[in-house]
């Protein structure tokens, strides 16, 4: 007599009917060995379900929460960046038009639009790097998330100040402040890239 295989016994547990199941059931009714084997299968599954519940050794909410907050701030930062970049684009357009109506684009203290443009370009490049790295999709330790969160908060503050400065009437005296803020933004973004990318490469991602 050919006994049922494990595949056939397992198939008997599945809902619905598959080809050959009727024959397998008929065999089962007539074969004590296969019937016992199916019982053992049921018992094994029952024992699997009765295995003790494994519990985490420590609380993980703090890590999850830090990451959740960092994610929320990053989203806010992205929204703020869109506004800032929009403003920057508008101001760029103004800068292009201004020579036609006001030939003097030089400002006080030797601060040039070029230096601001350069800082803005560095800022955009670092944002692209961060975007490509996609820190939101990666797992971070609570400590890393905490540092990233502080940096993102500070970037958001700089962005708010930049918006205020950029919306103010064009004044040469404001250029130094704009340049300082853009450079500050570059420094903070640079640190944020370090936090994410350096950590990632140190653990071999």
């Amino acid at each position: 007599m050919t006994h049922l295989t494990i595949d056939q016994l397992l198939a008997l547990r599945e809902p619905g009917s598959e080809p050959g199941q009727a024959e397998a059931r008929a065999h089962l009714d007539a074969c004590p060995a296969c019937s016992a084997e199916l019982d053992r299968l049921h018992q094994r599954v029952a024992r699997l379900r009765a295995l003790p519940t494994l519990r985490p050794a420590h609380d993980m909410w703090a890590v999850v929460d830090a990451r959740r907050r960092a994610d929320r701030r990053a989203r806010q930062l992205r929204r703020a960046s869109v506004v800032t970049l929009g403003l920057a684009a508008s101001l760029g357009a103004v800068a292009l038009v201004r020579p036609l109506v006001a030939p003097s684009v030089r400002n006080d203290g030797g601060v040039t639009e070029a230096a601001i443009a350069e800082a803005r370009e560095q800022s955009a490049s670092l944002e692209q790097m961060l975007h490509a790295y996609d820190p939101d999709a990666r797992m971070v330790s609570g400590r890393t998330a905490g540092v990233a969160q502080v940096l993102e908060d500070r970037i958001a503050q700089v962005d708010q100040r930049l918006q205020t400065v950029d919306l103010a009437p064009a004044q040469p005296a404001r250029n130094q402040e704009r340049l300082d803020l853009w450079r500050q933004r570059v420094g903070l973004l640079d640190a944020l890239v370090d936090v994410h990318v350096t950590r990632a490469s140190s653990v071999g991602f």
């Binding site: 494994l54 985490p56 993980m60 909410w61 999850v64 990451r67 959740r68 797992m139």
Partner: peptide, 11 residues
């Protein structure tokens, strides 16, 4: 690995 999965899941 299991802790990583918990973290990823709840995030």
């Amino acid at each position: 690995d299991a802790e990583d999965v918990v973290q990823e899941t709840f995030f």
